[in-house]
């Protein structure tokens, strides 16, 4: 029982990261019907830029800079990869462009930071804390708190501020939002900035717990994508639940079956959800709006 509790707790931090990246997928899908398939690379770039920055400053001072970097990187992806595809009404062009950009980002990162994984200095003590016999790393607590804080901040912005409402309106009916005087093109660019920003932030949250390197984003981005599908691309909190389910499924499988199979439950869950409820467990409607 104690072991299971320990596995669940360890799965939570990882699950929150999946949830946070999946949340980023949702942000752009809501406003534009498109996704950045380079979300994992946005995370990787955030982590590596953060790594370089912590050589010159504290972890806490680095975070706002990485957030700004993530936002700019998102704007770049939208302007270069997504906007041209949307303009030409190319239905699937953005899939190719965001994947291509992801590959380019990975290559650039390999050239700047090398091929090897690097340890990221932990800003918090690395000795685990004990709660009722369960060991928790301080960094794991920071991951959970940080992820929840940024998701809540975005939700609060959407509900309370007039600009946030403009984002929701654009998601609900883009043409009608334009009639309200809302610059919907800017809203989409903004959602890309926000999306990459959350990914970059997730990168510096997870980096001290794992290793950083040019390839760290590939698997994370893919798993978070399945979380976004499982949780529903249009249901706000579904991704957190989906992320936690996947994170916990992985740590428990890794322990009880074999670490070699730890990626299997997520994929099984994905297949299961897709065959039973294609809009996701918490999805409200069909995935593609027509």
């Amino acid at each position: 029982m104690e072991i299971l509790a320990q596995l669940v707790v360890s799965g939570i931090a990882l699950g929150m990261i999946y949830g946070l990246i999946a949340f980023g997928y949702q942000l752009t899908f809501a406003t534009s019907g498109t996704l950045n398939f380079g979300q994992g690379e946005a995370l990787m770039l955030g982590a590596l830029v953060g790594l370089t920055l912590v050589g010159h400053m504290s972890y806490w001072l680095m975070i706002p800079l990485v957030i700004v970097f993530g936002a700019l990187q998102g704007i770049f992806v939208e302007r270069v990869g997504v906007l041209p595809a949307l303009k030409t009404k190319s239905e699937f062009g953005w899939i190719m462009t965001t994947i291509s950009l992801a590959i380019i980002f990975k290559n650039v990162a390999e050239n700047i930071w090398g091929h090897d994984d690097i340890t990221f200095p932990s800003p918090l003590p690395t000795a685990p804390l004990q709660f009722f016999g369960i060991r928790v790393l301080p960094m794991e607590i920071l991951v959970v708190v940080g992820a929840l804080a940024i998701i809540l901040a975005v939700e609060l912005f959407n509900r309370k501020s007039i600009y946030g409402k403009a984002v929701v309106a654009t998601s609900s009916d883009r043409d009608a939002a334009g009639l309200m005087g809302i610059n919907t093109g800017m809203v989409i660019t903004f959602s890309y900035a926000l999306s990459s920003m959350t990914a970059a932030f997730a990168g510096v949250l997870i980096a001290p717990l794992t290793l950083t390197g040019a390839t760290m984003g590939v698997v994370l981005g893919l798993k978070a994508f399945s979380v976004a599908i499982i949780g529903g691309l249009n249901s706000g909190m579904g991704v957190i639940v989906g992320g936690l389910i996947l994170g916990i499924a992985e740590t428990t499988t890794g322990y009880y079956i074999s670490t070699g199979y730890k990626d299997v439950p997520g994929l099984l869950l994905l297949l299961l959800v897709l065959s039973i409820k294609p809009a996701g467990m918490f999805g409200k409607s069909v995935i593609k709006k027509v």
């Binding site: 007039i162 409402k165 403009a166 929701v168 309106a169 998601s171 609900s172 009916d173 043409d175 009608a176 939002a177 334009g178 009639l179 309200m180 005087g181 809302i182 610059n183 919907t184």
Partner: peptide, 30 residues
């Protein structure tokens, strides 16, 4: 359309096109 709206032209479109996931007050504020 957003610039035209800002120039002072309002359009209540065919088929209503209200923002379904927002409250009545939020729709009006928008």
């Amino acid at each position: 359309s957003s610039r035209i709206a800002r120039s002072g032209l309002a359009h209540s479109p065919e088929g209503r096109r209200v923002f379904a996931t927002l409250s009545v007050t939020d729709n009006l504020l928008l």
